[in-house]
């Protein structure tokens, strides 16, 4: 059963990812990206990580994608403005794409990816609840990174305001 669901959503994710690259209309590509994000969320559920799945839907499918769509609507009204390809774009893309594929295959062929890390095995997480485990760790071992996150968000927001303010006024 797990395997069927995995192949269903993995296929969906790959097809939608191809759509992101291949579709000429940037808004349609962004909608394909939403399908990719939601398929990945389903795969996270299969990996016994429901909190990561929920965060994936909320942050990526909800917030990040809205930013993408807004940038598209800000920058390129109209379908495929047809700005010509850069010089050497295709051969360079092929070379770099091939290099990345070889690298990924080498890493995945040799790497060992353990499902359990320290005391947190999937069985123990199912017992105590994965959100409880994240909450407990976040406020004990990872307290400083958590607080620094809020400073990072503050800096990001102030940066946006400073950069965007000039354009709003003018």
């Amino acid at each position: 059963m797990d395997l069927i669901v995995f192949y269903l959503f993995a296929t969906l994710a790959v097809i939608a990812a191809l759509g992101v690259v291949a579709l000429r209309n940037p808004v349609h590509a962004a909608l394909c990206l939403a399908v990719v994000f939601i398929s990945l969320a389903a795969l996270y559920v299969l990996l016994s990580a429901p909190f990561v799945a929920a965060a994936q839907v909320m942050i990526y499918a909800g917030a990040i994608l809205i930013l993408f769509v807004f940038v598209i609507m800000l920058l390129s009204p109209g379908v495929d403005q047809g700005a010509g390809a850069l010089k050497w774009q295709r051969p360079l893309a092929a070379v770099f794409g091939l290099a990345l594929a070889v690298e990924l295959i080498l890493v995945l062929a040799s790497a060992v990816l353990p499902a359990a890390r320290g005391q947190y095995t999937p069985e123990r997480l199912a017992q105590i609840g994965d959100v409880q485990a994240i909450g407990a760790l976040l406020f004990t071992d990872f307290l400083l990174p958590f607080e620094i996150t809020s400073l990072l968000l503050l800096v990001a927001m102030v940066g946006v305001i400073v950069l965007a303010k000039k354009r709003v006024r003018s």
Binding site: F51, A54, A55, M58, I59, G62, A63, I64, I66, L67, F70, V71, M73, L74, G129, V131, Q132, I134, G135, A136, L138, F139, F146, T149, S150, L153, A156, M157, V160, I161, A164, R167, V168
Partner: peptide, 28 residues
């Protein structure tokens, strides 16, 4: 679109991330 929509979207992202951190805190 007007650039102002984008500012709202960015502020929304910041508070969306805040909610993601609030959730495990509330559960635990």
């Amino acid at each position: 679109f007007r650039v102002q929509y984008y500012i709202y979207a960015l502020i929304f992202v910041v508070f969306d991330i805040e909610v993601v951190f609030l959730y495990p805190w509330a559960v635990a």
